[in-house]
Each structure stands twice: as structure tokens, then as C-alpha cells.
Design a protein around this nucleic acid. Structure first.
Lengths: 142, 142
DNA sequence: CCGCATCCGACGCGATACTG
DNA sequence: CAGTATCGCGTCGGATGCGG
């Protein structure tokens, strides 16, 4: 396969799928990627392979169920590998596949953007809320 | 403001906030950005200002309620502007703010990634599902 | 130590109808 | 055309207990 094909494949792929269409498989994939923990898990694994418990510790607030669920989805989609080492207490490692390593930077970009622009967003929110204090919180106090 | 400040500000921001912490405001922002329709709305508005109905038409499958909700959140966070033209049938236009224009490419990158790698993901899913056909269909037992 | 299955409460979300 | 309000269902997501 000559190198010229790379650009062509990109082009073909972008034409074949359009996430704006409701039934397009891409929409489903996009939804999956947009899941609450996907970004953090991928960002975390971007720093190297991790064990289940390591991830749970690093990503504060995630329940064991959600973490497993997220990891299984990622595994199914070919973004991470799940390696079980049958020692006495079982050891399970998760690592990014090449596909996952390709995606991780993009997810990291969002995380980075959020961290960098948090101040501006908070300012915008404050301004917005100040403009309409009526419709915010009001009803039924204890 | 000298150029040296830009990099410093980035650095400071990334140190001040860490989305891995549960209570960090960044986590909340990240969740918001990961919402089902955020990416598509931002991607759509990246192509220029749009009316409410235009967005609804372009983004197949979104309900009017969700679209409004998403747009209001984006407005509150300072990512889009909402312009009301009080003609007889009211006209409302949405456009990206500078902040939104900064974020849009990142969201587009995810959408593009999904569209470009859909084939590989589908292949991975097929392979995964083929490996464990047992745990798929099972119930229907006495 | 890992993670799967179950139960169950809480919203998220869509459909509908009404105001400006 | 844009947006709000209400209702009902479906799903998500947390807690617990067991199996490997």
C-alpha cells in the first residue's frame, strides 16, 4: 500500500460517515466517547498502563461499576487492552492500543482546554447568573 | 502584555486546576462539554451563526428541548451568544464567542477522529463480540 | 485484589400542549 | 418561530454481596 493512500483513506472515511446523521454509527461512537468517564480514563492511561485500582484512585469519584463499564467499552472498541495476570491475588492491567494512543491526545486536549479556560467560564457564568437572579434558585426553602 | 505571559498563564491554569479531583470545577465543566449534544452543536456553529431551527434541522435526532437546554448552557458558559431579533415571528441567532471559537476545533477533532476511525472500531467490536458469543444472548431459560 | 450480578432510586430525556 | 411547563417512561448510576 503506497503512502498516497493515507490521505485518501482519511478523505473517504470523512465522506462515508457523517455524525450529524442520526442513524450513523459515528453518532453512537461519538456518544460513547462523550461518556462521563471516557475522557478521564483515556487521559489517565495516556500516562502509561495502569491497574484497575490505580485508575480508581487517580480518577476521584468514579464508582467501581462505572470504571469497569467504561473500561469494557473501551476494550470492546479496541482502544485499550485488558491483561490478566493470574497471580494469587489476580492482577489486571489496562493499556492503550495504538488506536487508543491515537485518540488520547485529542481527549487530553479537551481536558487541557477545560483547565486552561476555567477562569473565563466561571466569569461568564457569574455574569450570566448576575443578570438573571430571579430564575435561578428560589422556591421552597427548608 | 508581553508574550511571555501567555505560556505562564497556561502553566498556572493547569496547575491550579486538576480535573482528576472530584470537586474541581473543571470536572464539572468537562462533564458539561461531554454532554451528548455539545460536540455536535459546537461543531455545527463552527460553520457560522445559525438559527434555532437551522440547528435542529442539521443535528438530526435532537429534541427541541435538549437543543434549547444545550444552547442555554453554552450561553451561560460564555461559549455562544444568543441574539434575539424582535421581528414578528421572533428570530434568534446563535454564534460562537471567541471562547467558543477556541473550543470548537477541539470538539471537531473528536468528531473527525470518530468518523475517520469508525471502521477500525467496528472491526474491533466485531472481533470482541465474536470471541464471546455466549454472554450475549442467554436469558430465556426455565 | 478484581469485577460481575442484582436491586432500586433518581433524573434525563422525549412527547405534548400552551404563551409571546 | 422560539421557548416553557408538565408528565411518564427508560436508563443511568450507586450500594451491596458473591465468585474467582
Amino acid at each position: 500500500m503506497p503512502t498516497a493512500t493515507a490521505a485518501q483513506r482519511r478523505q473517504r472515511a470523512r465522506e462515508a460517515y457523517d455524525a450529524f446523521m442520526a442513524e450513523c454509527p459515528t453518532r453512537q461512537l461519538l456518544d460513547t466517547l462523550s461518556d462521563k468517564w471516557m475522557g478521564l480514563v483515556l487521559a489517565s492511561l495516556g500516562g502509561g498502563p495502569k491497574r484497575h485500582s490505580e485508575l480508581a484512585r487517580k480518577i476521584a469519584g468514579v464508582s467501581q461499576k462505572m470504571l469497569t463499564q467504561t473500561l469494557r467499552t473501551l476494550e470492546r472498541d479496541g482502544l485499550v487492552t485488558r491483561t490478566v495476570t493470574p497471580t494469587v491475588p489476580v492482577r489486571v492491567d489496562y493499556a492503550l492500543t495504538p488506536l487508543g494512543r491515537d485518540l488520547a491526545p485529542v481527549m487530553l486536549a479537551i481536558k487541557a482546554w477545560a483547565e486552561e479556560h476555567m477562569d473565563q467560564v466561571r466569569a461568564a457564568r457569574a455574569a450570566y447568573d448576575a443578570g438573571r437572579p430571579e430564575d435561578a434558585t428560589s422556591p421552597a426553602l427548608p
